[in-house]
Design a protein around this nucleic acid. Sequence first.
DNA 1: CAACCTGTCTGAAACGTTTCATTCGATGCT
DNA 2: AGCATCGAATGAAACGTTTCAGACAGGTTG
Lengths: 333, 333
Amino acid sequence: MGTVSNVLNRPDTVSPPTRERVLTAIADLGFVRNESARHLRAGRSRTIGLLVLDIANPFFTDAARGVEEVANAQGLAVILCNSDGSPAKEAAHLEVLTEQRVQGVVITPTAELSTQLQALRSRGVPVVLLDRRAPGPDQCAVAVDDVLGGRLAADHLLERGHRRIAFIGGSGGLPQLQERHDGVVAAVREGTGAEDALTVLTPETLTVAGGREAAARILGLPAARRPTAAICANDLLAMGVLQEMVRHGVRVPEDFAIVGYDDIDYAAAAAVPLTSVRKPRVELGRRAAELLLDEAGGGTQDRPHVHEQLVFEPMLVVRESSMVRRPRRTVAS
Amino acid sequence: MGTVSNVLNRPDTVSPPTRERVLTAIADLGFVRNESARHLRAGRSRTIGLLVLDIANPFFTDAARGVEEVANAQGLAVILCNSDGSPAKEAAHLEVLTEQRVQGVVITPTAELSTQLQALRSRGVPVVLLDRRAPGPDQCAVAVDDVLGGRLAADHLLERGHRRIAFIGGSGGLPQLQERHDGVVAAVREGTGAEDALTVLTPETLTVAGGREAAARILGLPAARRPTAAICANDLLAMGVLQEMVRHGVRVPEDFAIVGYDDIDYAAAAAVPLTSVRKPRVELGRRAAELLLDEAGGGTQDRPHVHEQLVFEPMLVVRESSMVRRPRRTVAS
DNA sequence: CAACCTGTCTGAAACGTTTCATTCGATGCT
DNA sequence: AGCATCGAATGAAACGTTTCAGACAGGTTG
């Protein structure tokens, strides 16, 4: 009935007595609006999608908190999905989100921006990239300067006297890892002049298990070529490396230094507190959600939406896992 | 159009040529079904809700994986919500889930089972409790024998010679914590006969910060009354306790032993690997989702749904954080 | 040749909202 | 008193599916 709708949505247009009557009826019957019908009629839903690479990675749950906070404040529900880095799962989730007609999607995509994602955008559904740069100016993105992040980590280790460094996370695949890699490469080249100073390892997954696997491979290298430190593309990898090193009696940081990335809360609580590259985790999520809602709402009354590509500056947090100066040579401060 | 619907849902009832024609048209137009319209007509949605206490707690993300796995296999989407332990947020999320007409809800509720939750059930929406016992036989629940878990932890510490033990997590509030508390109390009473052997602390939150806070309070106690070990109601608390102890130069486990609960992956990776009470985290989620789907589907063709209250047995995993025997007295094995 | 299947396709109704035009009654103004 | 105006309530249409009854053509049977 029209009046019920008015009571719920424009209470002032209905007279107090009727309003009262309708409200008690609603309470008596336990009536709850049907969001699907609402959405169907309105043409727009009250939900947004959030699609992350790894729900078990605290970086993403922290970012998710930021997204939720902003969305809920606007009365929007968040559908949180996990692609586990698999393009197939990503595609399946995007399909579901499209069917749900979400108002927009915040996503940390797997490798290349999929055709699914392009299709979504060409349908007019706003998409904001999270922790990943936009490929062009026609799209919103909230990212971190990962080249700088890689540099910070590498410079720190070089300063401490390390001359053979491993980068764990691969050189292809995810662009954000690629950038971290590039920053490390540039810094190591400038710092040492040597081409072979850097060993790049590509673990199966970007998880604790992947870190253990990479550490095992490092330990398998002949001593003369074995790195004395590792920069890990995220903290989970770093924790895995740490575990494996400790398990083999390698002392961290005395025998082997470790630098992580993201600075999740557990990094500071690890067996050896981890040096890590800090990102504003929750803020990344918040800003992504804000950009998404602005785009979905077409901006504000006096300002149309303009696509923004936010890039935050990361910060190195030094902890025990890299605290020792290599004895071999002294270093200019 | 009816034919389109048939092509999508019962392809065999439509002749191959028309099917072809419709499919290419769908591809050309980029047509995607509208789930809201679908749901409105069908009367049931293709989503379930999952409402957890703390999305930042890896226990819940692991359980969420289990839920997602099962739900996705059935073509259902999961709306993952986070109450952060707040009844108000829980109520708000339940309201949204009700409006979305989810097929069911898997929930780890805050304190008492809210009227919202009762209302949901009386609407006929299945609700499965996760990591929490059902109050009666008229409801599904997937839980862990937390009294036993508490006992395992306490017996272990008693065996190691500890005679003053702290339980961190409070004695009221969440039933699952209450049970852990009760198990510890019973074991300590039986093991020592002393009434004052147990100190119960109730931190502000069940997080790492809460653990630090509790540890600070323990350190503030006069040495004669200060516990020599702590049993924490979850691993986050345990990690907080560990951090604060280390920060104050208290050696773990030599000066102070710690036992956690849940056995999240980070427990083994902590500064001092944590002894913890292990629960089948992912399996809990899987079974909860299975029970939910069975209830939502009214059982299977030859078997109606019967409510089940699953109780898993926890297992103590001993690691370094409790590995030292107290020197004071010897202990019967 | 008529009656009857059978396999396909078509069209209308229904789901639960919101919106908007319309109706109705009352009030104020001329 | 008659007319315009206003506020409040009503009713119908529309959103995009699915379902189901019906139409229609072509073939089979009696």
